[in-house]
């Protein structure tokens, strides 16, 4: 399905305005898009982990959700929705629910990479028919910008300051998408808010793959990244152009890179202008930029190899031509 905005504009808006996300936050329009990726005869039940998107959409007595939504806690968006999905199966079997439902769980990187990792892993392993979307803004933003395991090396946060003794976060980010690929679920993808065609297609696929699916979406937080209010989308694009955040999908174990930059931008094009990386641009910390570049290059090469292997595998699996 190729995303067509004109057609899409006929779909009802399922995330009402009046939510309290910061002006220019990139996650809400990603959610708006996600909620439209169902067929007309399909309803959605969503769950969301504690974090910015939950807090801003459900300040009592207001809710931005026009479909059903449940927030239970920080670390259990996947487990909670797995219960709702199980309920659907049994209530449909017993004739008590007649409509078709799809299930969409969401969480920030803190609620997904870190505290909710176990709950996500469990739900994926059990095979619930649901899509989990991580909106990855590379930090615990709601509690005031702390490092998570998704925060890039060198980034300054309120728990990884750049001081005289420390240069910001000391570890590289966790490759959560790879962890999810290792679950051998039908569909895993990495996407970015700047490329909504690719994003929309992936969400549609994830919701309709007939099993558990996971999409990791880069969704910049201008507050945490210390960029302009209207620059979130642009910085997501730069991350992709620098191969820091490749767009790819893994369908039934086979890798496909969805976008290959014509000329890969140097990592500095993404880093510069972000306040959280400002301290990297002095001689003392320059080695961190080199490490980030090396990591991005290594990961990109790995991905190219995996895609090539997948092509081989697909060829080998295809029936011989008569």
């Amino acid at each position: 399905m190729a995303l067509n905005l004109k057609k899409l504009s006929h779909k009802p808006e399922m995330l009402a305005p009046g939510h309290r996300a910061c002006s220019g936050c990139t996650a809400p329009f990603m959610i708006r898009l996600a909620l439209k990726m169902v067929e007309d005869d399909e309803k959605l039940v969503t769950s969301i982990a504690t974090g910015c998107m939950e807090v801003v959409t459900t300040i009592y007595p207001f809710s931005a959700w026009k479909c059903s939504n449940i927030h239970c806690a920080f670390e259990n968006s996947a487990a909670t929705l797995s219960g709702a999905e199980a309920a659907y199966r049994v209530l449909a079997k017993r004739g008590k629910v007649k409509e078709k439902f799809k299930f969409l769980a969401m969480g920030g990187d803190g609620g997904t990479y870190d505290i909710g990792f176990q709950s996500l892993s469990g739900a994926m392993e059990r095979g619930h028919e649901m899509l989990y979307i991580c909106y990855d803004n590379e930090g615990y933003m709601n509690t005031g910008i702390q490092r998570s395991s998704a925060t890039p090396k060198g980034a300054e946060t309120n728990t990884s300051f750049a001081g005289t003794a420390k240069p910001g976060k000391e570890q590289h980010r966790k490759d959560l998408t790879a962890c999810l690929v290792a679950h051998d679920i039908p569909y895993v993808a990495q996407a970015s808010v700047h490329n909504i065609r690719d994003l929309g297609d992936k969400i549609y696929k994830g919701l309709h793959c007939g099993g558990p699916a996971f999409i990791n979406v880069l969704a910049p937080c201008h507050r945490g990244w210390r960029i302009g209010v209207d620059q979130g989308v642009e910085y997501a694009r730069l991350a992709v152009e620098a191969n820091f955040w490749p767009l790819f999908e893994v369908e039934k174990g086979l890798y496909k890179i969805n976008y290959k930059p014509k000329t890969q931008l140097p990592i500095t094009d993404w880093l510069k202008g972000q306040g959280r990386f400002k301290h990297l641009f002095n001689d003392k910390n320059k080695h961190i930029i080199d490490e980030l570049q090396a990591e991005a290059d290594k990961k990109w090469k790995q991905l190219l190899r995996r895609e090539a292997e997948s092509l081989e595998d697909a060829k080998a699996a295809a029936p011989a031509q008569a």
Binding site: A16, P17, G18, H19, R20, S23, T57, T58, I59, Y60, P61, F62, S63, A64, W65, K66, C67, S68
Partner: peptide, 22 residues
């Protein structure tokens, strides 16, 4: 007079004015 369990009606945030933030 409020629904038990803190349940919220769908889409009610529309009543909240965020235009004043501009």
């Amino acid at each position: 007079d409020v629904a038990i369990g803190g349940l919220v009606e769908p889409g009610t945030s529309e009543q909240y004015n965020t235009g004043s933030w501009r």
